[in-house]
């Protein structure tokens, strides 16, 4: 179903996520330059934007767009990885005006620049604030593989696959360890 929706859009990684575990049905890694094309497809298909946010990781800022659909149940998240030193993503506010504020908020919190946003001024932070509160220092940043798991991969580029090395075993091992730990504590 997603293959058809995104036919012709270059997708870096398409995975079917575990809904019971993550609350998401699909998770799609995109390059910044193909984002607009993918969002246009979603717009035509009647999806609506839930929110835009970002996660700071070692590899860069992971900008997340959560979409949902009124009729088809299921959440889709678009993920765009941008480097720390030049965090630029095209703005989707032309299609989804709801993103105007979400993008301003993400700009406030992480300093990500949404190119083409008509009015990228501070939204929640005071206008004179010169910091981005949710940017982590280098010490507490974690790599993506410690933060999320890849679900059932439909197609994936090497570069993304490389971020999640030996995904399955590691996750299983870690989870078992966690549970044992939790039990021991309680």
């Amino acid at each position: 179903m997603m293959d058809k929706l995104f036919a012709g859009v270059r997708i870096r990684c398409l995975e079917k996520a575990d809904y019971d575990k993550t609350g998401q049905k699909w998770s799609v890694f995109l390059a910044p330059n193909t984002l607009l094309k993918a969002v246009a497809r979603l717009n035509d298909d009647g999806w609506f934007l839930e929110d835009v946010c970002a996660v700071d990781s070692v590899e860069g800022f992971l900008v997340l767009y959560h979409f949902d659909h009124w009729q088809k149940s299921g959440r889709l998240s678009l993920k765009v990885l941008v480097p720390h030193d030049d965090p630029r993503v095209p703005s989707i506010s032309g299609m989804y005006q709801g993103a105007l504020w979400h993008e301003r908020e993400t700009h406030d919190f992480h300093g990500i620049v949404f190119e083409g946003h008509p009015n990228l001024i501070p939204l929640l932070l005071p206008a004179e604030a010169d910091f981005h509160p949710l940017v982590k220092d280098a010490k507490s940043r974690l790599p993506l593989k410690d933060l999320m798991v890849l679900g059932e991969v439909v197609s994936c580029e090497e570069s993304i696959q490389a971020l999640f090395p030996e995904e399955a075993e590691e996750a299983a091992a870690e989870q078992g360890g966690e549970e044992a730990e939790a039990e021991a504590e309680s």
Binding site: K21, T22, L147, A171, E174, Q175, E179, E181
Partner: peptide
């Protein structure tokens, strides 16, 4: 879960 409880890693919505 107690205050020191640790959940597994991962993302959830």
């Amino acid at each position: 879960p107690k205050p020191s409880w640790k959940p597994p890693k991962g993302e959830v919505y």
